[in-house]
Write a protein that binds this DNA or RNA. Structure first.
Lengths: 233, 233
DNA sequence: GAAAAAATATGTTAAAAAACATTTTTTATT
DNA sequence: AATAAAAAATGTTTTTTAACATATTTTTTC
């Protein structure tokens, strides 16, 4: 269940370069209106179509941003980690959220009312520029993703997703095991394929010695070859 | 061939709400560094991977923004019309352009050096906010596009593209003929399908009375049914 | 205006991936 | 620990769409 959290977290401005741009006065203001909320695994944080009343930041855990298309088939747009922001696009465009956000695992988030976020964007040029740069990166990722998902074949798309997970979450201490444990269904929803095909193709990769599988734990054995498969489609 | 244009165009700040935010001093500055360039049909304006030295605005004609994926297959990201801006994302992210821009037809564009554009963004909050809103809209379009192109079948994708063209360019005086004349190949590159399939599916639509075809001119006869085909995938 | 080139049209075949079906394994619940 | 539920694995069939082939029409070039 969603609930207010009493546990203490570091204030926003100590967490990343975005919030570090705030002035003393702004920090006070934001401190007064920020809420800390925890969600349990798979709980929905916001729905596509909901009025964008807040912009959000992940504090702990991972958040899944996804759209539902034809026949409730899900497309994961982004997987977030601590200190990533979300919901900011809808706030800026003054539109409803255009995707769903759900707790990938138990997690804690900060949320700031839209009005306060927009006030900061308009009042503080450095803050605004930071948000812009984040959005510019997200836009590039989205455009690249469109081409990857439409033009590459299943193997290429799956390899692409595995490499994206490596880039985003890195490895465990062994420098091989993906530091992100996810069900095959999510891997499928990232890669625009059915769960069956994600499972099948992943076992093929294992048979070819590109990865090794231990339940949900994936070890990346041949990153170079995966990159090649991804590149060639 | 690309060439400097001597013909007179209205100054930027009279053209749309973005440039209207500039102060007198900024207008002078920009006026000194803006260049007017004309491109002939299908000429490349910038390549993916080129250093983002300018942000651009269409003055006359249409511009095609596209990416090349596997095997040089093209995906059209956006089709622009006068007063639309492009190349701004790469300038803000301080990255190379992530797509190609080419003249869809003979056209004239303004271009502003990246440094000047960034200076404006940082100095003028209203200008910055306008750019942000444009980017927020483009990001939403890109995310929707990803799901459309990956989940819908050929008929749904083609219907979607036709409706997008209607929305973007409108109709001729007859209120039926699409005010945008484009080869089937571009329609295919918008819709993630082969040219053959765009041609075939378009003739099917014609046979079903949804559109009528007169060479490259497309009359939309049953927008409601096209919307239904698009919606159901 | 004739020839060449490009675009459109349409039929056929092959490849890719979804859909469906069933079994096995893992995880959660009592 | 036993049972139920969920996830993973894997084989088969069907659908979708690309690839290929070829003819026709339209546009461009000389």
């Amino acid at each position: 269940m969603r609930r207010q959290v009493v546990e203490h977290f570091a204030p926003l401005w100590e967490l990343n370069s975005l919030w570090a741009t705030l002035t003393e006065a702004e920090r006070l203001e934001v401190g007064n209106v920020v809420e800390t909320i925890s969600y349990s695994k798979n709980e929905i944080i916001h729905f596509e179509g909901d009025e964008s009343r807040w912009m959000w930041m992940v504090l702990r855990g991972k958040v899944r941003i996804y759209k539902e298309g034809i026949g409730l088939r899900q497309q994961i747009i982004r997987l977030l980690k601590p200190y990533d922001i979300f919901g900011y696009r809808a706030c800026i465009a003054d539109e409803a959220y255009n995707s769903n956000a759900s707790a990938f695992e138990d997690c804690v988030v900060y949320r700031i009312p839209r009005a306060e976020f927009i006030r900061l964007v308009k009042a503080n040029g450095a803050f605004c520029y930071e948000v812009m740069q984040i959005m510019a990166k997200d836009l590039a990722i989205s455009e690249i993703q469109t081409v990857n998902l439409t033009q590459k074949h299943i193997r290429g798309r799956l390899a692409e997703s595995l490499l994206a997970l490596v880039k985003n979450y890195g490895f465990e201490k062994d420098e091989q095991t993906l530091a992100m444990v996810l069900p095959r269904e999510d891997l499928a929803n990232m890669s625009n394929m059915t769960t069956s095909n994600a499972i099948r193709t992943l076992s093929q990769f294992a048979q070819e010695g590109l990865v090794s599988l231990d339940g949900k734990h994936i070890r990346i054995l041949d990153e170079k070859e995966l990159a090649k498969i991804s590149r060639l489609g």
